[in-house]
Amino acid sequence: MTEPPGDAALSEPDDGDGVARSEADLRRYDFVEELLRDKLSEALGGWRGAVESAVPTLAFALTWARTENLRTALVVAGACVAVLLLVRLVQRQDPRFIAYAAAGVGISAFFALRSGRAEDAFLPGMLQNAGLLVLLLVTNLTRWPLFGFVVGVAEPEAFAENPTWWRRHSGIVMVAARLAWVLIALNVVRLAIMVPLYLAEQVAALGVAKVVLGWPAYLVAVTAMGAILLRGRTPIDPNRLA
């Protein structure tokens, strides 16, 4: 009998030891939501990551509003990144969130300096939001939700053997898709607010919007996802783990 197309990818044959260990590890969780809470907590930077992401953008916007000098605003934003990075290194803590901020400032500086328009410093972020929106939509509609890969990557050995091993569990696919719809809504809101400001060349308002729609809005989205993960009771395919 031919298997339905929608379920075909959920029944791959067994793989190597890494996948087997990951499958066995799922026995520790009663529900898919519990599993995703555990895995997603490893990917978030907490309140400090939020501050480190917002400070360079806020510094850029405030400096531009005061001086209207593009290079000065970029230098101040870069200096903030350098100070935050130095603090992380002195404390011997994970600097990856500073690295994200540094990459963001560097890309923004490239766009803004190349065009000479301060508002172009915000163009990479908007393009990133648009790209993420398309990616989330496509992966959700094709039943390959992006959050499923968070579960996959969290198990490096299994991911190396079979990056799609998590798709064997329909519960993971379903809950991961629900989480993605929250981020889809967030990116729609971000673009709906920031694109008109960009077209109107409202640099100071763009800076404020980027900060407010950055970590604060993201934390609202995380709260919504948290509600899904706390209230949900989706079994982790008990028959498959038997």
Rank of each mutant, 00 (worst) to 15 (best):
T2P: 15
G6P: 00
D7I: 13
A8M: 12
A9D: 14
L10G: 15
L10N: 13
S11C: 09
P13N: 10
G16I: 07
D17G: 04
E23R: 15
D25K: 15
R27M: 04
V32P: 08
E33K: 09
E33D: 04
E34N: 10
D38N: 15
L40T: 10
L44Y: 15
G45M: 03
G45L: 03
W47L: 08
W47C: 00
G49V: 05
G49R: 02
A50V: 11
V51Y: 06
S53G: 12
S53H: 09
V55E: 01
P56Y: 11
P56K: 12
L58S: 11
A61Y: 00
T63H: 08
T63K: 11
W64L: 07
T67P: 01
T67M: 01
E68W: 07
A73Q: 13
A73C: 04
A73Y: 08
V75E: 07
V76E: 11
A77H: 10
A79S: 12
C80M: 13
V81R: 07
V81W: 02
V83D: 03
L84A: 06
L84M: 06
L85E: 15
L85F: 04
R88Q: 14
Q91E: 10
R92V: 00
D94N: 14
P95E: 06
A99L: 06
A101Y: 02
A102S: 08
A103R: 00
G104E: 08
F110E: 03
F111A: 14
F111R: 06
A112E: 05
S115T: 04
R117G: 03
F122K: 05
L123E: 11
P124Q: 03
P124D: 10
N129Y: 07
L133F: 12
V134D: 05
L136C: 05
N140R: 14
T142Q: 01
T142Y: 03
F147P: 13
V150T: 11
V151M: 10
V151Q: 08
A154K: 02
E155P: 07
P156C: 10
E161V: 06
N162L: 03
N162S: 13
W166N: 04
R167V: 02
R168C: 13
H169I: 02
S170H: 12
V173T: 15
M174H: 15
M174V: 09
M174G: 06
V175Q: 11
L179H: 04
A180N: 07
W181R: 04
L183R: 07
L183P: 11
L183I: 09
I184D: 01
A185R: 03
N187S: 03
R190V: 13
L191C: 02
A192H: 10
I193V: 14
I193D: 03
I193E: 05
M194R: 06
P196Y: 15
L197Y: 10
L197A: 10
L197E: 09
V203D: 01
A204C: 04
A205L: 14
K210M: 14
V211Y: 01
V212N: 00
V212P: 02
G214I: 10
A217R: 13
A217W: 07
Y218L: 13
L219N: 11
V220I: 14
V222P: 04
A224K: 00
G226I: 05
G226R: 14
L230Q: 14
R231W: 12
G232V: 08
I236T: 00
I236Q: 03
D237E: 12
P238E: 02
L241M: 00
